[in-house]
């Protein structure tokens, strides 16, 4: 199972209801967003004058670059398939990809708030919520992003943005289920925003007419993977109270690499 979302640009009217509903649902700070709507154009495209929107959110990627960037201690976490009850246990840091529903989630209780994951995301889908300082750990806050509203979905509700969309432009479901509406959209040609350098399997996809899709992809596709801020993750690792004994070796090992990275950082 892989949850995914389709944005149908033929329907979207750019009204921003999705972004505000999300803020209300998850108490997102006013100047931050788990999702966004950027107005594009009117601009000339090879297909003619076009104007559309980039309603963006976390892509819950197949190979998320944010997950390996997390410097938190790993723990064993047991995941459960909501349908079959099957379980799977994995070593995860404070952000991970759920092996059963395919969503990328954050363990807020263990997040250091270092922002390394946010830096690693080519889509800018993560931010650090400074209102949520994890006081046991310290740090600047806690990373936050779209969760595909899993707590709502688990109760049988639609994600908040989907529920409030007056245009039915946001369609949520299981991409692995060929009968789902989202899978049908993929068959019709819904695509994620990928480029040669950024090809990590985004599961939020877009569908629209030629000119709108041209405008969207030409303006909003990330063209390179961000270089992670090594200084930040190094600093996160050095947080007092976090250096549990079992990780000291790991820290030393990584430290050498990171020091190198740090000096590179300093050059610019």
């Amino acid at each position: 199972m892989q949850y995914g979302m389709i944005i149908d640009l033929n329907r979207c009217v750019g009204c921003h209801a999705c972004t505000i509903a999300c803020k209300a649902e998850w108490e997102v700070p006013a100047d931050k967003g788990r999702n966004w709507v950027h107005r594009l154009g009117p601009s000339n495209t090879p297909e003619g004058l076009a104007s559309t929107y980039y309603p963006g959110l976390c892509n819950h990627c197949n190979e998320p670059s944010c997950v390996p960037a997390c410097p938190a201690d790993t723990i064993e976490k047991t995941f459960k398939d909501a349908k079959t009850g099957k379980t799977k246990t994995m070593e995860v840091a404070a952000t991970y990809k759920d092996p059963f529903n395919g969503t990328v989630q954050i363990d807020k209780d263990r997040c250091l708030g270092c922002g390394a994951c946010a830096d690693a995301c080519p889509y800018g889908a993560r931010y650090v919520n400074t209102d949520l300082v994890n006081e046991e750990i310290g740090g600047e806050g806690v990373a936050d992003k779209c969760s595909y509203c899993m707590p709502r979905v688990e109760q049988g509700l639609d994600p908040a943005c989907v529920q409030t969309c007056l245009a039915n432009a946001r369609i949520f479901g299981d991409l692995d289920d060929p009968n789902s509406e989202v899978a049908k959209y993929v068959k019709k040609g819904a695509v994620g925003l990928t480029s040669a350098a950024v090809n990590i399997g985004p599961n939020s996809r877009y569908y629209g007419n030629k000119k709108d899709m041209h405008l969207l992809t030409s303006t909003s596709t990330p063209m390179e993977m961000p270089s992670a801020s090594l200084r930040r993750s190094l600093m996160a690792r050095m947080k007092p109270g976090f250096n549990k004994a079992k990780n000291l070796g790991f820290l030393g090992l990584a430290g050498a690499v990171l020091v190198k990275g740090l000096s590179e950082d300093d050059q610019d």
């Binding site: 209801a17 209300a24 529920q163």
Partner: peptide, 24 residues
Amino acid sequence: VKLEGNPKSIDNGTAICARGNAGI
């Protein structure tokens, strides 16, 4: 905590706009 469209509505349904959502 949050405003939502009334699911029983045959007018707006569960949808409300950005402004409606921001009522709180």
